[in-house]
Amino acid sequence: MSEQHKEHILPIKAYLGVAGALFILTMVTVAVSYINLGGWNAVVAVSIASFKVSLVALFFMHLKYDNKINLFIFLIGISFVTLFIIFTMFDTLRRADIYEIKAKPIKEKAHIYERAPDDSTQQSDAAQH
């Protein structure tokens, strides 16, 4: 830790190279978006975005040369967001897998059912009071 007193200074060329790669990848991902690949569009877009993010993190943010604990923190962030999304989707994508859920109002006269979908909360509240 205290040995690396001097910062690792990248040459300007390296920064320009990374930026160039980011530009090219952006053009690729935009170009691909005009081709219909079905479900693969999302896969390609996420992969390219993740690759771009790695470039920014490793070079612009110096994670490649920095104390490894900072890289670890960054990865923790990404993995906990992933965990949050996956665990939430265990629910949202799997509802009514086992028991059939019939949606029915608990209280038929409750005022939330009287409201048209595009009607605003405020208006119906105002009408009630």
Partner: peptide, 20 residues
């Protein structure tokens, strides 16, 4: 971070999520 769904067993979340 892996157990929050146990507050929601009767909320209408999916049975599979509830089991996990």
């Amino acid at each position: 971070f892996l157990v929050w769904g146990h507050h929601m067993f009767t909320s209408g979340q999916s049975e599979i999520a509830a089991m996990i």
